[in-house]
Write a protein that binds this DNA or RNA. Structure first.
Lengths: 195, 195, 195, 195
DNA sequence: TAGTAACCGAGACGGTACGTCGTGTCTTGCC
DNA sequence: GGCAAGACACGACGTACCGTCTCGGTTACTA
């Protein structure tokens, strides 16, 4: 009817991904199995394996199919405000009750499966980082940051502590904590030590 | 004969942990199974399950059994040098060819298993962090850092980017990168932005 | 090609039963395990459990798959000769070197597992008994036996001592012994006691 | 204190056998394990293995420890009445609700374990049979039975159908059925067939 | 419009590992 | 020195998924 070229195929793909997220939220990633997704989705296992090579790949696609909108930076002229807005959004996604645990589990999976790691990087992490770096670069070009400002390192200082908290100490990620990091990055930690 | 109190038990425990590391290095964490460890160690599966509740718990203990010495800070009076030395050591352990992949996989496992996460934190992460914070505090008390210096945040800025690189972007962790972070923390990123 | 309806399934079923008998003869029923049958047959354990609920059920089917022909009575007009022929055949099967031990073990198993007992009865014992009773009935109808002749009891007297010898005293079952029982049944034990 | 030479030992032996019967009646022979008996009896496994070589041997001893009195034939002069009394008693024991299932299971076990079979024969079956044969012999010697009366066969005809019913068809054993067999043996089945 | 190829559900299949249970042997320490 | 307690190596249990495969029964393109 519509112009969708592979109607049946796309339907199944979406149904499977939807089921994956649904089931994943219910029973957690560790208990999730392709077998169970197939059963719940009313799909044959083959139909899943035809599309994805592993549980991780399936979840990755499923999660990425969510943020159709994507997180784009507006450039309001205020770097800090822009970064803050964007990081708030990212934190809400990663640490939110809905899909936070699945995101977290997916990053966990990436530690055993380098293909997942690569795909996760390429399709989720890098785009985010690139936008952050681009926004910082714009600020630097406009003279808001010193010419020697290390863009990549700044990005890492903004992201690292958050992922550290998410993955390692497993404490809740709050907006307040984001503020502290932003503050430290742009205001500094205080006078340098005198060795 | 000797004063060894639980000779038989301790013997098996050590043998199993040794085998776990050996086999883990050979075939990787994902392919590691309790069954295989038992077989290789000449132990019954029950003997393993009696001690550890999961593959992750076994690997955690096995890895922690390695650095009996632990990484202690000398206080040379130079905070930056002391931190650098300690972080170098940590990075060499986490990213080293020997056990780096296993450490990484263990952190991955912690994302699906909250008991592993808690144990990992309590027995590996927190002690390290505490020492770092203590060393920073000593420096602050001695006036080498400003009174408002946020110790915990500094620790997070030192650790976060490293774990980010280890777990997320999966790029190699170098001493040079550690230097950049230390530099950024204590020297600053440059003048603050003018919003 | 042919009319075989469930080719793949039937193939595995037969292969598994064949292996069961083969392995059972080699190592005995007590040492037989579903695990070992699966391994020898090149089958997954699940494939066995899908068909049979226990070792006993598997052996029962395997043994029954043997005598496709079955033991049928010809009616030559001579009851005793007909019975003799049929009982000889039964005794040869039950006490034969090939499968006797397995039959015996199966009857043993039936003592702990009432489902086995029921199936064994229904599919092996009862058909045999029915045929014997039918042959006796024909003889009685033709006036070769007295009208009050107790068919069921006669059947029990023909079978009981044989199973007693097989299962309880574990002495070898000979044709000569069958003859003695037949003789006793139809000729009598001698004059009745005078109380 | 008393003259019992191995007081502690005998105590344990009895306690273990008592527990075996108790537990056997509760959960059935198939589910019975030496481990469970030891636990319930508050005994070490070693203490059991020191005395019995297998579950079957333990149960055999336990069951035999029951009928301290034993079943002795009075010789009232009436063979049939004497036999009837004794067989009633045997049937009540073997098919009784209390220990019948355990007896039955033990006979089942004997089919896989020839040591059990031998012991069962020697200590339970043969003594019974011997007494029966002896009683029959006395009757024959007193002229109550014909000189050619086959004592062993008569014993087998008396026992066989009962065990057949107990072990094979698993129908209840009644006194009425015993009567039918006695009747057939001593009164005959009717006129011989004319071949 | 008929044929035909791809896709699909269902699920059988050979595997691997799971976590549990019971075996029979052993070691330890109490009494 | 017998005993309770239970650790130990071992082997099998029955289950769960894996990833591959075969089977028919629809689609939906192609000729």
């Amino acid at each position: 009817m519509t112009d969708a070229p592979h109607r049946r195929g796309a339907d199944r793909t979406e149904a499977i991904m939807r089921t994956t997220l649904e089931l994943g939220r219910e029973i957690g990633y560790a208990n999730l199995s392709i077998e169970a997704v197939a059963a719940r989705a009313g799909a044959g296992k083959h139909t899943i394996y035809r599309r994805w090579s592993s549980k991780g790949a399936l979840l990755l696609d499923s999660l990425l199919s969510l943020n159709g909108p994507g997180l784009d930076y507006p450039d309001t002229g205020d770097v800090v405000a822009d970064l803050r807005a964007q990081i708030y959004a990212a934190v809400d996604l990663l640490a939110g009750a809905s899909f936070g645990p699945l995101f977290q589990a997916l990053i966990g999976e990436a530690q055993h499966d380098s293909r997942i790691a690569a795909a996760l990087n390429e399709r989720f992490i890098a785009p985010q980082a690139d936008k952050t770096v681009a926004r910082l670069k714009a600020a630097r070009d406009q003279g808001q940051l010193s010419p020697g400002f290390d863009l990549d390192l700044a990005m890492a200082i903004l992201s690292g502590p958050l992922y550290f908290q998410l993955l390692i100490t497993q404490e809740p990620l709050t907006h307040e904590y984001v503020d502290r990091i932003l503050d430290a990055l742009f205001t500094g930690m205080g006078p340098r030590p005198r060795p």
